[in-house]
Design a protein around this nucleic acid. Structure first.
Lengths: 205, 205
DNA sequence: GGCGAACCTCTACCTTAGTATAGGTGACTA
DNA sequence: TAGTCACCTATACTAAGGTAGAGGTTCGCC
């Protein structure tokens, strides 16, 4: 019987999903409410086949939590689950070695299939994901940004002024202005606030 | 047998919660994936006792969806459910007449209790909610904002310029500047971008 | 009636943000 | 070698954002 560890800090979601998986199919589901609890659980006696991590969970810190879990337990398969993440994050997760990405928009039945798929050793990625509401033609708008522009955008997302960004990146304020201007143009937005909101909406930072 | 309508656009969450409610207790659960579908369903033959709306659902538009549902079906009890909303939103929802607020952080068992409570005619609000990670001393910073300042903040959250906000609110640009200045002071932030990010983080708009 | 609060407006001023153009560097490549 | 690209800097300018002080209106409240 495959043994699954589910980490989600939403009690309701965690309880009902694990109850569902436990009854519908022959899964042995353990559930915890934080990344730390998951890691601790995996260091215990029971060995797990699959760890499912909620992307929004407290302490995950974006994809850092995913990488930490994979690093500390290289033999266990790890899947990321999310209700809000989009193609950008999903792609990043997969390219960093996740064994699967499970959007919460999936039906319960599809989720079970996805889990079985992953347990059989495949890597699961939802095909038609992120194209519906995501008008981005093929790949992300953000991929057009250069390294420096991306860093600038990151600072923008904390609400820093040009002067502050200049200090943070060790360049002149004029340079920051240039980067900001390019970012606005590439993202096709009118001002820094919109750029920050856009990046936040896509959960880039 | 009480009849419940659950609206959530996360298939996984919706399926598992409704399955759980359907088995654990004697609830007759119907589930849909959008606000419009919920409203349509309620206009049909079956009469529902309780409508549970997911706050993050597509088309909800903050508390607008809640108000619309209450207005169109005044006899049906309406509860808001959310995984990310904090005390601010919860309070607002209750003060606008919602019959309950169900955070997804609740355990499945507590959720069932809450639902029973609401069905019995009470209004449910989680007691110790939103105090843990919310450093706000007692009440929300946002409650200090006047009506106009709140409207200004809302426009800010779309990334509009002062001039555009002025047009939207039918006032002079100088007035908008005044409102913006007051908002920044009350929220204790340095600029409009930070104000927008802060409001977005707390999921006010 | 007097008071305060929220609202709107104005003038004036200074700071920050964003645009335009031009020029210089190093790295990589046809 | 010439070309391209990301990067940094510079000057100069316009537009937008934010501050300060003063004044006026409406409304509810003691």
């Amino acid at each position: 019987m495959p043994s699954i560890l589910l980490a989600d800090d939403h009690g309701l979601v965690r309880d009902t999903i694990s109850a569902y998986l436990g009854t519908i199919d022959d899964f042995d589901v353990t559930s915890v409410s934080s990344l730390d609890a998951a890691l601790k659980e995996m260091s215990g006696l029971t060995s797990f086949d699959l760890l499912i991590l909620d992307y929004q969970m407290h302490g995950m810190n974006g994809l850092e939590g995913l990488e930490r879990a994979m690093k500390e337990h290289p033999t266990v398969k790890v899947a990321l689950m999310s209700g809000i993440a989009n193609r950008d994050v999903a792609n990043m997760a997969m390219s960093r070695g996740a064994d699967g990405f499970i959007p919460k928009s999936l039906t319960a039945a599809s989720t079970v299939n996805a889990i079985k798929f992953i347990l059989s050793g495949e890597r699961y990625f939802p095909f038609d994901f992120g194209n519906a509401q995501n008008e981005t033609p093929r790949d992300s708008v953000f991929s057009e940004l250069s390294e420096r522009e991306l860093q600038t955008l990151e600072q923008l997302c904390i609400g820093l002024s040009n002067k502050e960004i200049a200090r943070a990146l060790n360049v002149q304020e004029v340079t920051v202005k240039l980067h900001v201007k390019n970012v606005l143009a590439k993202l096709k937005v009118a001002n820094r606030t919109q750029a920050a909101l856009m990046a936040k909406e896509r959960h880039l930072f």
